[in-house]
Amino acid sequence: MNHIENKSRIDPELRDEMAKQNIFITSLDFIYNWGRRSSVWPMQFGLACCAIEMIAAAAARYDIARFGAELFRASPRQADLMIVAGTVTKKMTPNVVRLYNQMAEPKYVLAMGACAISGGPFIDGYNVLRGIDRFIPVDVYVPGCPPRPEALLYGLMELQKKIDSQTFTKAEWYQKGLKREFPVPELGPNGLIPKFNPEIWQPREQDARKTRYGQTVLTGKKQKAPRLEPVAVPPPPAA
């Protein structure tokens, strides 16, 4: 993830020195981002296995509350961060995109686990979306199957760094003509319509997986059915 450090024009040493004397000087950016990054409220939104690790991260041993992100909101309207924790199937994709659209700005997406990033172990399935970044922009990717709670916490810290790097004056959610609601895909006869949103994601020119392993698993690879009875006579199918 690319981000720049927040360049405050106040010398941090001077600021700390003054803080000891109970004099607080800050820039608007600093205090704005400090407030935002210290209370990232995730959406309570578990899809699959990774959600259990998300719960473990919220529980006593890992304690996500240390980062101000313990308030899992059930409503997307109250959430800042969507943790896509688990396999996104094609049937579920319209709901995920709709939930993203319903979140209020500023909003962030953390793709947790291999499935949410690319389809993971289930990439070959006919009903599995190959990465949620085909439809909504993702800020932080946390790999793993499932990622350990520590990994999720690290992802959250990376997100905090990203939040820190954004400036108040250039914040995109205050700009005019911002397009952060994406059309919700529909369920078609073979899968999703459309297959991806080209404004957000485009297939790679060189796909090593495609050339090396083939594209998908073909169920009809086998041409000879097993015969369970030892008799040599082929069974006629009943009417």
């Binding site: 297959k195 594209q215 009809g220």
Partner: peptide
């Protein structure tokens, strides 16, 4: 989809229906 002759779609290539929808 679990019949042996089922063919999956290629999820990296847009079809005409997708273009129209987009």
């Amino acid at each position: 989809p679990l019949r042996k002759d089922y063919r999956q779609e290629d999820t990296d290539v847009l079809e005409i229906a997708d273009i129209e929808w987009l």
